[in-house]
Amino acid sequence: MHVLLDSLAMIALCYVMGFLFQGFYRQFNARLQRRWGPSIWQNLYDNMKFLLKSETLIHGPMFFFGPMIIAAGAITTLLFVPFLKDSDWLQGVSTHGNLILIIYLLVVGPLGNALAVGSSGNPFGVMGVTRGLTRLMGLEVPFFLGLALVMLQHETTSVHAIMAAQDGIAHWNLITNPIAFAVILLPFIASQNASPFDVVGAPVEVYAGPRVEFGGRLLGVLMTQNMMMTIAKLVLVVDLFLGGASNVLELIAKAFALFLLTTAISAAFPRLKTEQTVDFFWKVPLGLAVLGVVLNVWLI
């Protein structure tokens, strides 16, 4: 019962934070471009509008189940991320998982959805999926290596243990292991599908990418999971590098600070092509990660 309530609370928190953060992102971008921008609730409206569409077209059973898989994947992922430390609440089932599991769970949903895109038979969608998988191949190597530096530092893959080891600001991994944070920052932005690495779902490229055939309520489900996933990833990085949080307000503040950083980076740089993205990740963040490995492992 406790787990069930806890899970519902986590899902609700993720959803609310999700649309507010993304609404903020749109408004932030608008202000940078000297316009008023939409209201901060705009993403809620968009999502609700799609969920309330009266007609939905499907291309066969697999097409229907794809968004369900991606939503289930998002919920599973966020339930395996501990939101708070030293608390009974907002833990989900995180004690039964670990960091490597979470990294893999992050891609379960998108891969499930890729099946749906494939079964729609639209070549533009599959092109988008291929680009997404290619970008994933680029970003995952430095991302995982950066997190491996953290796992090595604490000699555990448990997010709880890594969080517990960071008591006090001086012990935050951001301070004790800045190279790891620098390594994962850009791949993290890419995993959030944010500019400048947003070539996959960018509207004017390949005709909307993987989402080309999704409309109506299925698109609503995709938007919902996207908002929840954004928050789950932010919270994961907060747990790993910013010492976690002991109450909800602290969690929101830290996640927002991190979000502000990534948003600022996103707003400043133009979009990269897929192969440029991969090449960039294999040169700059991966080079930095190799440097970190040499410093951490070989020289100590």
């Binding site: 000297r34 316009r35 008023w36 968009d46 509008k49 004017v204 909307a208 698109l219």
Partner: peptide, 22 residues
């Protein structure tokens, strides 16, 4: 959609494919 008229403040935004458009 530009800064001068900014239709996004009314929740109006471009869609790429007809499946997603209202």
């Amino acid at each position: 959609m530009t800064s001068r008229f900014d239709a996004e403040r009314f929740g109006i935004i471009g869609a790429a494919t007809p499946r997603q458009a209202d």
